[in-house]
């Protein structure tokens, strides 16, 4: 009759064993899971963008990212054409159109609003020794 109770003894250790192992593993494994958890948004070209940092550090919301038409869909201008005053392509003084004018490092350059709207960014190089590389963004 006594042997019957000894049979339960291993079960007791097994149950407590599982309990302690789960306690020990629970915390580190869930922390690891959070660190691995990355947040991606997929644009219309199928490209995935990792925005984990933007969400966690800047509290940005994944659902506030819109359009996702793809990098290069709006091409930036990396080699702008600078037209001097004496060039025939220089617009006449009476011409009625809108510009964004930059006065920087002693140089003035005007960018037509319609060109800037089409490209969003002009990557520019202004003459001078300091801070000459700039982007004009609409």
């Amino acid at each position: 009759m006594k042997n019957k109770y000894f049979l339960w003894l291993p079960c007791f250790f097994v149950v407590w064993g599982i309990f302690f192992v789960s306690l020990a593993e629970d915390l580190p494994s869930s922390t690891r899971l959070n660190m691995k958890e990355k947040i991606f948004i997929t644009d219309r070209t199928g490209r995935k963008w990792d925005i984990t940092h933007a969400i966690k550090v800047y509290n940005m919301e994944p659902e506030f990212f819109h359009f996702g038409i793809g990098a290069g869909a709006i091409p930036s201008v990396d080699r702008p054409v600078v037209v001097e005053k004496d060039n025939t392509a220089y617009p006449q003084s009476g011409s009625d159109f809108s510009v964004f004018g930059v006065n920087y490092n002693g140089e003035q350059r005007a960018y037509p609003v319609k060109d800037l709207a089409r490209h969003e960014i002009f990557n520019e190089t202004f003459p001078g020794n300091v801070d000459q590389y700039v982007s004009v963004a609409y």
Binding site: W49, M60, E61, F64, F65, A73, S76
Partner: peptide
């Protein structure tokens, strides 16, 4: 560096 539009906009 060269900046360019990423194709994304952001805002509520």
């Amino acid at each position: 560096i060269h900046l360019a539009p990423s194709g994304w906009t952001y805002g509520p």
